[in-house]
Amino acid sequence: CHSECLGNCSQPDDPTKCVACRNFYLDGRCVETCPPPYYHFQDWRCVNFSFCQDLHHKCKNSRRQGCHQYVIHNNKCIPECPSGYTMNSSNLLCTPCLGPCPKVCHLLEGEKTIDSVTSAQELRGCTVINGSLIINIRGGNNLAAELEANLGLIEEISGYLKIRRSYALVSLSFFRKLRLIRGETLEIGNYSFYALDNQNLRQLWDWSKHNLTITQGKLFFHYNPKLCLSEIHKMEEVSGTKGRQERNDIALKTNGDQASCENELLKFSYIRTSFDKILLRWEPYWPPDFRDLLGFMLFYKEAPYQNVTEFDGQDACGSNSWTVVDIDPPLRSNDPKSQNHPGWLMRGLKPWTQYAIFVKTLVTFSDERRTYGAKSDIIYVQTDATNPSVPLDPISVSNSSSQIILKWKPPSDPNGNITHYLVFWERQAEDSELFELDYCLKGLKLPSRTWSPPFESEDSQKHNQSEYEDSAGECCSCPKTDSQILKELEESSFRKTFEDYLHNVVFVPRKT
């Protein structure tokens, strides 16, 4: 048989008469490798580009789960590009990614509803959504962080984005990388972005840091009482949809009607710091009717980097990364020049730590249904340095008659930039024990000054392991946590139920 035959053949030295091919099969003959313009397919066939392209389009058009959109890589027609490569849609070739590779997620039936953290986790790592997304989240724990972890990498949506009755959302900033909504599939009414009845939605994105392009379709905003109209108009300008909307697409009466839409800028007039305090004062603000001013709200939190936005980490279910302080308005003076500047002394802060701070007014709604208010920009203030805590785990070892090696770990709280350490030492008198000992005694162990690591005695271990207080009263049991108490109650309830079950099964009433 021919060298490319495997198993047997019907005619000697003829690659077209093989029972099976050793390498690849091409047009009725066995070959060692697939010549151009053919590609290896499933490690035994040679196919042309049209064959591989037909497989790709067949799966793409069917949208069946589990099928493969075949691509070409290293002269092979394979189910998908290997790690580190992405497909070129024009020629199906796998090309190296520039940075992290995109991950295209194809949605069944063309859309997916995100109504819980669990459903959001199914899209973790996706960068391109081939379909439409509907966000409908009523509640949950730590929602802002969970949504950002699972949806934060999405850069492109081919269909539309719909935010509907998501009472738990305060902001859409968890879509931190969303840059493009194509609108290839539109919501009824030709809408590519749809926001309806979101009672706590206050911000779409921080438009000073976020760009969003909507290729096709219109915007729809109705019944978002805490979303200011200025935020919607800003989205029109940034996304390129200005002029597409009709009169009733953006409701003037049901958007922002319960919001404090600040239209003035508060400026800080005085800032002073110490290692654990920050004193702030800002310019006074009074609405047209000074009785509408209820006070100020001061927001602050630790910020290692200057990239904080107002609604980071917030949701309507209680999660809030900001510390909020309510401040009463100052006494009002008739003389504008003698107006008191409101302020606040922030206490209990960490030394040498940068804080993000902003302040906003708290006002009631005027009778004319106009909203007044003022808010400052987010500023960054760093507390002063102070003395560091003591170095940890000092170790001293003498390696000769004239040297001592000293080692330690950095302090747990540096409280500033540590530039150097101060080492103090003092000579001590020799131990009298060394002169009084009889060095001729056998088995004498000389006193040693070398360091030995501390260890816990058996008594201390027994005390720590004991669940009861000892007789001397030195140790006591740790208080039980809520989960331990709940577990004990469940076990007790189970024992009672099981005992009742045994009584009912074992003891049967005697027939009379």
Rank of each mutant, 00 (worst) to 15 (best):
S402H: 11
I181N: 00
C228H: 14
C261E: 02
D326I: 01
T323D: 04
G183C: 00
I188N: 09
P330M: 05
I188E: 05
Y191D: 09
S230K: 14
E302D: 07
L133D: 01
P284I: 05
Y191P: 07
I232C: 13
S208T: 11
K407T: 04
S319N: 04
G189V: 03
L153Y: 05
Y223W: 12
T371H: 14
E155Q: 03
H341K: 10
D206H: 05
K226A: 09
L107R: 10
G140T: 03
A144V: 13
L265T: 07
P329H: 05
P391V: 11
L147N: 02
S269L: 14
D312F: 09
P388M: 00
F193V: 09
N136S: 04
W352Y: 04
A303Q: 08
D393W: 09
E368N: 11
M346Q: 05
I135H: 05
Q258L: 08
S132Y: 02
L212S: 02
K209A: 07
Y160G: 12
A356N: 01
L169Y: 12
G125D: 07
G110E: 01
K409T: 02
G256F: 11
P287N: 04
S274C: 12
D292P: 01
P329M: 13
S338T: 14
N334E: 09
L153T: 12
W282T: 14
T215R: 12
K337T: 12
T383S: 08
G343E: 15
D289M: 01
T113C: 15
L123V: 14
R202I: 00
L133E: 01
P288D: 07
T371R: 10
D393E: 13
S208L: 04
K277R: 03
N211L: 12
F175K: 00
L293D: 04
P284R: 15
T113Q: 07
Q258T: 12
S396Y: 00
A303V: 14
Y285P: 01
T383F: 00
I278H: 00
Y380V: 13
L204D: 00
M297I: 13
P336Q: 11
L201N: 01
T309M: 06
K226G: 06
S319P: 14
K209C: 14
L178F: 05
F220L: 09
D115C: 04
T273D: 03
T353Y: 08
G295A: 11
A251K: 10
L280G: 02
T353L: 08
N399A: 14
Y372A: 02
P304H: 14
Y300R: 12
C261S: 02
Y160H: 08
L169G: 04
V324Q: 03
S366L: 04
L172W: 00
E264H: 11
L123A: 07
I157R: 00
V390L: 14
R247N: 07
L227N: 00
I404G: 00
V238C: 09
G110Y: 04
V104M: 11
P394D: 05
L212F: 04
F275R: 05
I134G: 08
E262F: 03
G243V: 02
R182I: 09
D276G: 14
S400V: 10
R347P: 10
I154F: 02
V324W: 11
I188Y: 07
E368M: 05
T323P: 04
Q121Y: 01
R370M: 09
V128A: 15
S389N: 13
Q354H: 08
D206M: 09
M235L: 13
Q203Y: 12
E184F: 12
L362Y: 03
D384G: 15
N340V: 09
G110W: 05
W205R: 03
N263R: 09
P329R: 14
V381M: 10
G217R: 09
G295W: 09
V104E: 06
L133V: 11
A195E: 00
E237S: 05
E283I: 08
M235G: 03
Q339G: 08
F193D: 01
L298T: 10
S260R: 06
V359Y: 02
K409H: 03
S158E: 05
E231K: 12
W352R: 01
I157Y: 00
T309H: 11
N307R: 06
K177R: 11
Y191N: 12
T323H: 13
I163Q: 01
V381T: 15
D315G: 05
S376M: 04
N334C: 15
Q121I: 03
E184A: 14
E155V: 15
I278A: 03
G295P: 07
Q121H: 04
I278N: 01
D328S: 04
P330S: 11
A316V: 12
Q314R: 10
G131K: 01
R124Q: 04
L280F: 14
K218P: 15
L293Q: 05
G240T: 04
F275L: 12
V128M: 02
T254I: 14
S166G: 13
S166F: 05
S338L: 08
I378E: 05
I163S: 05
D206Y: 06
R369E: 04
E236G: 15
R202S: 07
V170G: 14
I214Y: 05
R247V: 10
F358V: 06
F365V: 08
N211M: 10
N399W: 10
L392S: 12
E246M: 09
N141A: 07
F296R: 00
N307M: 06
L186G: 08
L349H: 00
R179F: 12
W282V: 03
F220V: 13
N340H: 07
S398K: 01
T371S: 10
I137G: 04
P304E: 15
E187A: 03
I154V: 13
G110D: 05
Y380I: 04
W207A: 08
H233F: 07
S398Q: 03
K277C: 12
D292S: 11
D315V: 10
N334L: 11
I232T: 10
G313H: 06
D312A: 14
Y372Q: 06
Y380E: 02
I395K: 04
T353C: 03
L204T: 14
L219P: 09
I405G: 09
Y223T: 06
L227W: 00
F299R: 15
Y167K: 13
Y191R: 02
V390H: 00
V363L: 13
D393H: 15
L201A: 07
A316Y: 15
N142M: 15
K234V: 15
I404L: 14
D328R: 13
N248P: 06
S269V: 06
V359S: 05
E146K: 03
A251Y: 10
W286T: 10
P330W: 10
S402R: 05
D335E: 14
V363C: 02
V308R: 07
N150T: 08
E187P: 02
L186D: 09
Q339W: 05
E148I: 09
T118N: 03
H210W: 09
D115R: 08
D393P: 13
L169H: 04
Y380F: 13
Q306F: 13
A316R: 06
S274F: 13
S239Y: 08
L143I: 11
F220Y: 03
D249R: 07
L279H: 05
P342R: 08
L161C: 10
L227I: 08
F221V: 10
D289T: 01
E184M: 03
D206W: 07
V325K: 04
T353S: 09
L186M: 10
C317S: 02
Q314A: 10
Q199R: 07
L362T: 01
D367A: 05
T127S: 12
S319W: 00
W408P: 15
S400Y: 13
F221W: 03
K301N: 15
